[in-house]
Amino acid sequence: MPRPSEPTRERIIQAASALFYNEGIRRVSVDEVAAKAGLTKRTLYYHFRSKDDLVAAYLAARDQPNLAVFRKWFDETEGGVPVKIEAIFRNLARSARHPKWKGCGFLRTSAELANMPGHPAIRIGAAHKKKFEDWLRATFAAEGIADPLQLARQILLLLDGSFAVVLLHRDASYMETAGEAARSLIEMALVGRRGRRC
């Protein structure tokens, strides 16, 4: 239960985050979120006009923390860029082995809202994935890789594909395999870079 001293909006977002991630956005009612936050539904609607706004706030609250964790894993890993990117997958695999792991909140939400492409949460999820792609592109460009955008998209596809397959099979080794593939792609791109300099 959130502490009463926390700002009300943050209490609501924390409650929604726990419920939406664990149960899915369609299965969780506004009443349940209000109850978990220790508030009335009227108070919740004072801060959020609709459940759609609350879902968008839930994803927006995950955006920067998720990106920061990826960068932290990257920065803390010894070695070159291929090993550092593989470490992101390895750390995600470790997370996926936790019994409460439910996959990527952005992808799960987009699947639940697939018939609502204009939903604000879809836009937030797309922007989140684009930020990760842009960070990868900038990282690869700094290494002198010829087509950093193409490589960034390949890595992003491996990442999101591994989220889906691990969730389906409940086998985190698929994420580790995807990380090995990502490392190989980056190593090949770096070899190509050296070849162009000869």
Rank of each mutant, 00 (worst) to 15 (best):
residue 4 P to D: 10
residue 6 E to W: 06
residue 6 E to C: 11
residue 7 P to N: 12
residue 9 R to M: 12
residue 10 E to S: 15
residue 11 R to W: 02
residue 11 R to T: 14
residue 12 I to N: 01
residue 12 I to R: 03
residue 13 I to G: 01
residue 14 Q to H: 14
residue 14 Q to C: 11
residue 16 A to M: 10
residue 19 L to K: 03
residue 20 F to Q: 05
residue 22 N to W: 11
residue 23 E to R: 15
residue 24 G to W: 02
residue 26 R to E: 14
residue 27 R to Q: 14
residue 28 V to T: 09
residue 28 V to F: 02
residue 29 S to Q: 06
residue 29 S to A: 01
residue 29 S to R: 09
residue 29 S to C: 02
residue 30 V to H: 02
residue 33 V to D: 00
residue 37 A to N: 09
residue 38 G to C: 09
residue 41 K to H: 07
residue 44 L to W: 06
residue 45 Y to C: 10
residue 46 Y to V: 11
residue 49 R to Y: 07
residue 49 R to Q: 13
residue 49 R to D: 13
residue 51 K to A: 05
residue 52 D to K: 08
residue 52 D to A: 13
residue 53 D to Y: 06
residue 56 A to S: 09
residue 56 A to C: 06
residue 56 A to Q: 10
residue 58 Y to C: 08
residue 59 L to V: 10
residue 59 L to H: 10
residue 59 L to C: 06
residue 60 A to D: 09
residue 60 A to G: 09
residue 62 R to C: 06
residue 62 R to A: 07
residue 64 Q to W: 00
residue 66 N to K: 00
residue 66 N to R: 03
residue 66 N to M: 05
residue 66 N to F: 00
residue 67 L to K: 06
residue 69 V to M: 01
residue 71 R to Y: 00
residue 71 R to I: 09
residue 74 F to G: 02
residue 75 D to Q: 12
residue 76 E to K: 03
residue 77 T to S: 03
residue 79 G to H: 08
residue 80 G to Y: 04
residue 81 V to I: 15
residue 82 P to T: 01
residue 83 V to I: 15
residue 83 V to Q: 14
residue 84 K to P: 00
residue 84 K to T: 09
residue 86 E to N: 11
residue 86 E to A: 13
residue 87 A to V: 04
residue 87 A to N: 12
residue 88 I to D: 05
